[in-house]
Design a protein around this nucleic acid. Sequence first.
DNA 1: ATACGACCTCAAGTAGCTTGAGGTTCAAGC
DNA 2: GCTTGAACCTCAAGCTACTTGAGGTCGTAT
Lengths: 142, 142
Amino acid sequence: MEAVFLHAELTIGRAARAAGCTVPTVRYYEEIGLLSVVNRTASGHRVYAHSTVEQLKLIRRCRDFGMAIKDINALIAVSTSPAECDAALALINEHRGNLRDRIAELKSLERALAVMAARCEATCVGGAAPCCTIYSDLAESG
Amino acid sequence: MEAVFLHAELTIGRAARAAGCTVPTVRYYEEIGLLSVVNRTASGHRVYAHSTVEQLKLIRRCRDFGMAIKDINALIAVSTSPAECDAALALINEHRGNLRDRIAELKSLERALAVMAARCEATCVGGAAPCCTIYSDLAESG
DNA sequence: ATACGACCTCAAGTAGCTTGAGGTTCAAGC
DNA sequence: GCTTGAACCTCAAGCTACTTGAGGTCGTAT
């Protein structure tokens, strides 16, 4: 008897692979209540229905988007009440704003580092100036 | 006697403000050995010399740049051996690469979210479509 | 029969701090 | 000289989002 798992039901390992995360991560999501508690085989192994795997994929995708778990919980919460499209859209747009802010921040950091590297290369020619500009640049507010 | 602290020596509160972080953070840096152990007054209050405050500023600036503490430790380590400009520059450039990768990643996420939001606005006109596209978009691999 | 991978639970570790409890010390005003 | 309130002290625990490890069971292929 090997057909214990129907085509739509997966072990935790296969569910994790389908969602692109690790097995302990899946168990962790269940533990904190982000993923609904799943059925078990007689021996205690978890069995994942197709819909649960979809839920897991959604969670992973949101995490990959940099969303915090509490925000994903909020998104899932509004998804359970039908036609709460406005709320979902608002959450998505809020997160877009966060992303844009973070991108701008990182860009300015990268520019500052580029300036520092260029100054070092110009000043510490030969690679052995004891007065390397990098440390003084780092210590300055900028 | 109020001139216990010379003009170059600061309390932990002033040092933290100078570096733009909190007091517990400064103590934490000392605890983990990132910041050197400082002198104390007779009553046990920490006293920060100008050079220590500069070191703290450097640490905070690197953290603001998104560098991990172990990387900052490496940078400080090369800074103690004179003329290790090459090593410092290599660390900086490595971090620039990390930053650029992260920026590209976030940009693609933002684009994907923008597409999702646009699709929702186009499909769920009126804000109450029960078939909102956001959830199916999120569940898809993208 | 035996090996081996995949599964199980529970506990602790990770980064980089923050927060809280409970108690001194300092500087200023009266 | 006394009191108030801010700033300091230590130690411990909490936070996010997981990962890692120990020690054991289950499933299946040979």
